[in-house]
Design a protein around this nucleic acid. Structure first.
Lengths: 354, 354
DNA sequence: CTGTTAGCGCTTTCAC
DNA sequence: GTGAAAGCGCTAACAG
């Protein structure tokens, strides 16, 4: 005569604020106050309410709370991919700050596709987040408009722009590329090649390439070969791009600049496999200063970006804004060139072989 | 006479269902039906409502919707860290499935701290998620209890256990360690060392070590040296652990097993820096089969785990369960040994040097 | 310090 | 096919 066992697990009906109030013999407002940690409840009642709440396993519903209070503790974060260590580090920098502020991060990856980002923003807005973080400064018109109209504090991260939707913090990728270009020119390189990912798979990387080009143009040179085969900036992508360049370019470039250090490492492996000595026969340049560099016997020449600090600063900016403080709207972070072992001063060492 | 500009951006008051209903000359119920894609509205009204909704920039509030419908489209996912590529890959495997099912992932990292996980679970439950995914099978009593009582579909991932909270999918880490141990024994290794992270920083890794120990015990050997200095399973951690082992262990072990491939790579670099040839003087073993292996000239001997597939399968299990289907409760996934270039058959090659 | 009254923006239920 | 009424579980605003 009893019904069949339920399809899944039993699911106790969760206690609600009313149950706690009744059991404690107080009004639901007192329970509400205690649960939110707000003043205005006598110590005795407070203790009793806490006890009952624990006993009943009561957890206030954030959904109901957000609706009633017209606010939420959600922070929506959109990043292109988790496969680039960069974004994992940025997120790591944010985590602690958001936690301390009682905010909850919702992370989504867009794989560099604008339309994904657009849909995500719409879904996100529906949750009334306390703030939104977007990666990069390239977004669809609709995305920008929705965010502007929503009034939700919005922070663009990783790229720097003078005209953010709301706030931004990042590095100037064009300048970073330009500075590295100047450095390489100074070292005597004149025939650079570039290995990256497909054109639409990382717009900031292309900004860096433009900066690099400019520096070489100033000495009458240019990027002699490009390879953009890979979908992701992986070790393997770097290797394949290098094969592409070395097989199809004559004369062999004197330096290959990679989208990032992981690709650069893959490229280095390929050069050495072919008997090309780095940096004597060919220079290798990465980007970011990822931590693989800490164990390599030949440290990669690269531009070091402040990822963790950027994440932490970003989170602080957003938290400050959410709590109504006036904050810096735009922060441009510095990039530092690390002169590693995969490039050398070709002016000096031209006649002195090791 | 006008007031000062508002502190932040203007924040248009967003349109709500009522506004759309009024503008379209229908009841809010019809709007609700159209927005949810439910039957019961005439094509003409449907079109008109869609038009007005778009014109007004109306986005239904998920907060209100969840409260009224007593459900949500959130999936809470807890992972230890984003710094191990493994978890990024698992997440990547899930993404597409959840997107297609209209579910929204909320990812949190716990840094292997049980109490963080416990707090996170409580916060998460407050959002009435459609499902929860936890990494590993070690959780606080409170966490398990809360999840059980909530009736929320729960999936434990990465470790396998016969007694999950609800469902689980993962690999058997003890067996994985044991199998690798057998493999090394077969190759003739007898003096293994282990390099990992601090004891509380990765419980599954210790399961693998136990399996490894068992295999060596069967031939009367044991793990002769251990180093667990690092907080994270990084390249650098592997290097430092290797320094620790090589400086303080005599005689030098014939093989070092690392927590994962990245640590193993750091260790390899250190060995070569010291003039120890891999695999002739010392063997190196990793775990996971991470993609750095695809570019190395000496591929690391490792146990390959199916991360992306595991993520996708996990997501499918959870989605099926959420939609009420009967599903597999427990799935144990296979681990495959990759016999790379950092170990060799010591029986065969003892007298034949390359 | 405590409680009452009105919603928050939507969906469920049930009439028509 | 359509809509009115009654909440979902909580908090803001106010009154005692």
């Amino acid at each position: 005569m009893p019904v069949e066992a339920p399809p899944n697990r039993p699911a106790k009906i969760p206690a609600k604020i009313e149950d706690v109030a009744r059991a404690a013999g107080v009004s639901i407002m007192s329970v509400s106050r205690v649960m939110r940690g707000v003043e205005g409840v006598s110590p005795a009642k407070r203790t009793e309410i806490r006890r009952i709440a624990r006993k009943l396993g009561y957890t206030p519903s954030s959904v109901a709370g957000s609706l009633a209070a017209a606010n939420s503790t959600l922070i929506g974060i959109s990043i292109p991919t988790l496969f680039e260590a960069v974004f994992a580090e940025i997120l790591d920098g944010m985590r602690g700050i958001f936690n301390k502020a009682g905010l909850q991060a919702i992370v989504e990856t867009t794989d560099y596709v604008e339309s994904f980002e657009e849909k995500w923003v719409q879904r996100m807005i529906a949750w009334h987040p306390a703030g939104v973080i977007l990666s990069g400064v390239f977004h669809s018109k609709t995305t920008e408009e929705r965010l502007r109209n929503s009034g939700i504090p919005t922070l663009e991260i990783w790229d720097y722009t003078d005209t953010p939707i709301d706030m931004c913090i990042g590095v100037d990728h064009f300048s970073a590329g330009y500075e590295m270009g100047l450095h390489l020119v100074r070292l005597g390189y004149r025939h650079p090649a570039y290995v990256g990912v497909k054109l639409n798979k990382d717009p900031r990387a292309e900004d860096r390439v433009a900066g690099l080009s400019k520096a070489f143009a100033e000495v009458g040179s240019r990027i002699h070969a490009n390879s953009r085969l890979a979908d992701t900036a992986s070790f393997e992508g770097g290797m394949k791009g290098t094969i592409d360049i070395l097989n199809n370019t004559a004369p062999t470039p004197d330096v290959i600049c990679f989208l990032n250090d992981h690709m650069a490492f893959g490229g280095t492996m390929e050069c050495e496999r072919r008997g090309l000595s780095v940096p004597d026969d060919i220079g290798i340049v990465g980007f970011n200063g990822l931590n693989i560099n800490e164990v390599l016997s030949k440290r990669i020449t690269t531009s070091v970006t402040p990822r963790t600090l950027m994440g932490a600063t970003a989170a602080r900016m957003l938290v400050a804004r959410i709590y109504g403080a006036r904050t810096e709207e735009k922060i441009r972070m510095p990039v530092e060139i690390f002169d590693g072992d995969t490039t050398k001063d070709r002016m000096k060492t031209r006649d002195s072989n090791t």
